[in-house]
Design a binder for these strands. Structure first.
Lengths: 246, 246
DNA sequence: AAGTGGTCTAGACCACAAC
DNA sequence: TTGTGGTCTAGACCACTTA
């Protein structure tokens, strides 16, 4: 006869807590019962309770403050920041983000030379390994409350025959004015992905546990739709949404 | 004197494995050493190894197949599916997705009446609690390989004075042709968020552990920019990207 | 000092998959 | 049958926060 396959205890506890979080029994911002008391309530040991809580932490439903307790993260509701994703071409020839945020670089951006990795080469329609000018920076705004990891990539081949053959071009968005001066008429396409952050990304973006990143790749196209540059954004996935006009 | 604060063993193991995954020592698709052997290698017990692996699983770097082993998930590379996010207004008056995917509903969609929750009321610019026509469906395409959770919302107030006052309107995208017949000139704005799935969402979308969802909200605007309808998409965050023209 | 979560041990027994 | 991961116990000791 087939075995019973009861749902494991840690999952029952996780389900109980999740349900309470979603239906308001455990309101957002309020502490959950301590591990000790949950262990007593469900007749299990502390490691079992911790396994249940680990699941909720990985899903971003619970945040733990050392020495203080476990707290319910507000799971729903409108993000407090909506970023309009458009590149505006100003009358003076400059380009600017539609959201108007003034970013500051944590460190001055320096151009480095890298070989195009597969994923970028694909979007830029160049052979993998072709040399790129590369800028990377952790950017902050609103006194450090807003954060993003920002990169700019330009293939060397795009700059052949221009004044930037010898001299590094500026990073985006100034890059776009420079490319326009070189005769490119630009339009932009953005690709949006999501994934969990690596530890260094989580630290740079101040991401709590269980919060994914938004990953936006903006390709600038010149003549005949040829990709000429790429901007990459790693954005915190909590409390932020991207807005696009279709 | 300040204590040493050594990094915990489970974190050292997690770091070792993550590094090996990222630098190719443990290639994607290949099995990691068993828990037992890792425990021996690092002179710890199995629960300690499991704690390390739990971290990598929650970050989507490792997938575990029961009874077989732990396998490296390919973390990088271009998603295999790019969905162009545009609503096309065809000559015959119908509306269609630019990506051309033919979705099938897992169950027939039925209109229900719900009260607008806060998050939706905000985007539709109506008071919370106002009644909505609501459609919800798990949709599949490509013989079940593509999946999305799709919802359509229309406020009752939008339909006053139309033939849909008595009769439920169709779900999107047919809804848009119906609204156009009612005299609305539509344009669309999409909002993109990300978050970890709840268990039922993970099951419906067949999401492996540690994989977030993309959450797209498409607002249809009628005269004077008034929101008239809302489409909601919950999409698997692995192997999928959204494309927008700016 | 008391209460919280963080780390870790040393096992036990079970379920599943492959040989 | 063997090897894998899944579940769970019953503790121990530590680090952090608050009072």
């Amino acid at each position: 006869m087939p075995a019973k396959r009861t749902t494991p205890k840690y999952r029952q506890i996780a389900d109980h807590l999740r349900e309470g979080i979603l239906n308001g029994t455990y309101p957002a911002g309020q502490p959950l019962p301590s591990e000790e008391s949950l262990a007593g309530e469900f007749n299990v040991t502390r490691p079992t309770v911790r396994q249940a809580v680990a699941e909720l932490r990985a899903n971003g439903l619970v945040e733990v403050l050392m020495g203080r307790g476990m707290f319910v993260r507000s799971p729903h509701g409108r993000p407090s920041l909506t970023r309009a994703r458009t590149v505006r071409h100003e009358l003076d020839g400059r380009f600017a983000e539609a959201d108007g945020i003034r970013w500051e670089d944590a460190e001055p951006q320096v151009a480095t030379r890298t070989d195009a990795p597969l994923a970028l080469a694909d979007l830029l329609r160049i052979p993998p390994g072709e040399p790129l000018y590369t800028y990377q920076a952790l950017q902050t705004a609103d006194r450090g409350r807003l954060r993003q990891l920002h990169s700019t990539y330009v293939p060397f081949s795009v700059l052949l025959g221009t004044k930037y053959e010898e001299q590094a071009p500026p990073p985006a968005p100034h890059l776009y004015a420079a490319l326009t001066e070189c005769g490119h008429e630009l339009d932009f396409t953005e690709y949006v992905r999501t994934r969990m952050p690596l530890p260094d990304q989580a630290q740079a973006l101040r991401l709590p546990e269980g919060v994914p990143m938004l990953h936006a790749l903006r390709v600038a196209h010149g003549q005949a739709g040829k990709p000429v540059a790429l901007e990459e954004f790693h954005l915190p996935g909590d409390d932020l949404e991207l807005m696009y006009r279709l």
